[in-house]
Amino acid sequence: MLLIPCPWCGARPDSEFSAGGEAHLERPDPDHASDGQWGEYLYFRRNVKGVQRERWLHSHGCRRWFNVVRDTVTHEITAAYPMGESMKETGPGA
């Protein structure tokens, strides 16, 4: 079981949350994106073995989205930060 540090509610068990997958995917411009760019955005993922940034929704709590930095091998969580915060401003991780 993961203990996920919700920025608003503190550490809670993962059964309260919904996993939202890889974070910081940028939606392409709908007027100009090619099929390839849409495919990339919708389906292709890094599927990192190691440290990844990912989104979580506290569905059975505050119902807010946020980002987490988690190692997909050890499951260690090293940071949690609100949506919209850019990658540069936050601590370690790929």
Partner: peptide, 13 residues
């Protein structure tokens, strides 16, 4: 499980 993982263990719930 609902989240990406390469650890070969699943959630207790």
């Amino acid at each position: 499980d609902s989240y990406l993982s390469y650890a070969q263990r699943g959630s207790f719930h």
